[in-house]
């Protein structure tokens, strides 16, 4: 990557994907020249907000601006990531920055994709605790430090969609392959010592598509802005499914 230091940049050529299905037949790229402070390493979201001051009709989602809400998953110079925590110094190639919507999902407008398919897959894995342990609002279900540590790397998902929309298997079968985000969530509950529905969960995943369309390409791992590893979680589910079948 020909990364150049942001401190050398004065004016940035920003190219943004534009599409309003009610107004245009086809999407197009719109160029902006953005003046940015030389000494500061802005985030991609900062630059998008500067562009929106030039043209208020640009639409994108944003909320926390600190990488925890998952609103601003974007395709930044070809790689999925969160606008608010991707510094220009990491993103920029040859003084150019191209921002497109997350790939593989229908575009509602400009950088805003329709997340319905993504959320539907999430809901399919029953993303909530199912337990036949004694539940009592006067105490916690006991869990050891070691049991709780098994959830580290699983519960932190922010549902930004960067992983699933970087996954070729999800592009091909977004309705049948659950995708890395939903599968990470499925494993988060399988791995939880308090959850007693492992058998029910595995049974639901046991078909040719839900899990097994993952071919270990690992795009999900390379783009996850929280540094999570869905491929590993999927591997664990596969192992459990294979063991169960034997």
């Amino acid at each position: 990557m020909n990364a150049i230091s942001a401190s050398e940049i004065k004016t940035l050529r920003l190219s943004i994907y534009r599409y309003d299905p009610l107004k245009q037949e086809k999407p197009y790229m719109q160029d902006f020249d953005i003046d940015i402070p030389a000494e500061k390493d802005l985030m991609v979201l900062d630059v998008l907000m500067l562009a929106k001051e030039q043209d208020p009709s640009i639409s994108f989602r944003r909320s926390c601006r600190e990488g925890v809400c998952g609103s601003d998953g974007l395709n930044i110079n070809g790689k999925n990531g969160l606008g608010c925590i991707t510094p220009l110094s990491d993103a920029i190639k040859s003084n150019k920055l191209s921002i497109r919507p997350l790939p593989g999902l229908p575009v509602i407008k400009d950088l805003i994709v329709d997340m319905k398919q993504f959320v539907d897959q999430y809901k399919k894995v029953k993303p909530y605790l199912i337990t036949d342990k004694k539940v009592d609002t006067r105490e916690a279900i006991p869990q050891t430090i070691e049991e709780r540590e098994k959830l580290d790397g699983l519960y932190e998902c922010i549902m930004c969609g960067c992983c699933s929309t970087a996954c070729p298997s999800f592009w091909w079968n977004p309705d049948k392959f659950l995708g890395p985000a939903a599968l990470l969530q499925a494993y988060r509950f399988i791995a939880d010592s308090r959850d007693t529905a492992t058998e029910e969960r595995l049974e639901q995943l046991e078909d040719a598509f839900s899990v097994f369309r993952c071919h270990g390409i690992m795009n999900c791992v390379s783009v996850c802005p929280k540094g999570l590893n869905p491929t590993k979680a999927i591997g664990e589910i596969k192992k459990m499914l294979v063991k169960r079948a034997l």
């Binding site: 909530y128 009592d136 609002t137 430090i145 709780r148 519960y155």
Partner: peptide, 15 residues
Amino acid sequence: ENMGLPFSRTEEGKI
């Protein structure tokens, strides 16, 4: 907690 909130834990397995 009963709904599944992943609280950190103590040596005794409490919140």
